[in-house]
Amino acid sequence: MSGFRDLKTFIANNGLKKAKGPIAVILIEDDAAIATTLSHHLKLGFRQIIALSSNPLPEAMLPLAAHPAASDGAAPRPDSRVVNLQFNTRHHQAHVDAVNMVIDAVPEGTWLYYCYNSEFLFFPFSESRSVGEMLAFHAEERRRAMLTYVVDLYAPDLARFPDAVSLSEARFDQTGYYALGRRNREGGFHERQLDFFGGLRWRFEEHLPADRRRIDRIALFRSTKGLKLQADHRFDIEEYNTYSCPWHHNLTATITSFRVAKALAQNPGSRAEIRDFNWRNSVPFRWNAQQLMDLGLMEPGQWF
């Protein structure tokens, strides 16, 4: 498609030089729940969404503007806050390259967020408060990054939903989450850092490489000069990887994600061995933040 810009060219033409956050970078890997993913994050209040895809997204997958022109009979147009750019999202370190390019391009101090299609951010009270309000409070507590837990969603029946995705019947694990101390290079433990596990990555760990079993991701963070995201979803500035400040608990958030379920249901090495993902601790996902807070899957901290 002519006019389908790539991320590198967009940045070179100063497309992000004066950008105001919070900005979401969403990597589109397949066709699952693209429109719903984009709409969900727009409703949270992100000022701009950079939707990265290998091929141009059909216009039907792009959210419509909230206030389309009504007087001239023109068809509603896609929301201008969503910018679809070309990028090789199937590369194994696509998140590293894309996020670091955006970090270098935006004004210092810009709040950024990243995820993949069929992933949905929830934070405490997100049904009634915007992501901008939440991050403003987080910044007042002198925090420049926020820990997010990636909670696996899955369809209840792989016979009906072979790609493991069902927005209307999504389920997840209500128990089975745990944390271990994070080792440093000297053999000790990092201060205020933990490795978190659970969900499908824990129950089907034999099908996942050891370096992909953690469910923690620093998905919300503030850009700063020289900051680099690493392949394991951590940053090269250690304070960014902490779950709280030294003096009290801070906000955390949750990303509910079909990504692991899709991979397990479709990869040749696992699909023949997995009949379904349900177990005794599976529960329906109600698509609200309160359910996740009630189960301890995110922390409101001092924000009430």
Rank of each mutant, 00 (worst) to 15 (best):
V96I: 03
A65K: 01
I23Q: 08
Y113E: 06
I11N: 09
F197S: 12
A155L: 05
R160Q: 15
D173R: 15
C115V: 08
D72C: 05
R286H: 03
Y116E: 14
N13W: 09
Q266I: 15
K8R: 10
H138C: 03
N55I: 04
A253H: 05
F123H: 07
A74Q: 06
R286K: 06
E169H: 03
Y240T: 01
E141C: 10
V260N: 06
I23E: 04
P58F: 09
R171W: 12
N55R: 09
T148P: 01
D294F: 01
V99C: 02
N250K: 08
A261I: 04
E133T: 12
V99N: 00
G3W: 02
P58K: 13
I50G: 03
I34A: 02
F123A: 15
F189H: 04
A12T: 07
V96W: 06
M101D: 14
K225S: 13
V165H: 01
Y114F: 04
R222P: 11
F161D: 01
L62T: 00
R160E: 14
T256Q: 12
V99W: 00
V151D: 06
S223W: 09
R185Y: 15
A231K: 15
Q174R: 04
E127Q: 13
P107G: 11
V283I: 12
N250R: 04
C245F: 01
N88K: 04
G198R: 03
Q93D: 09
A98N: 02
N117S: 02
G301A: 05
E186R: 01
L44H: 02
F137W: 10
E29I: 15
V150Y: 05
R90Q: 04
G181F: 11
A170F: 14
P22R: 11
L251C: 10
G3M: 01
A263Q: 09
T242G: 09
C245L: 08
L62F: 00
T37G: 02
V106S: 11
E133D: 08
L229V: 15
L44C: 08
D211G: 10
E169N: 04
S166N: 05
F87R: 03
A210Y: 05
E191M: 11
T9A: 11
G199T: 10
P246L: 06
L208D: 14
E140D: 06
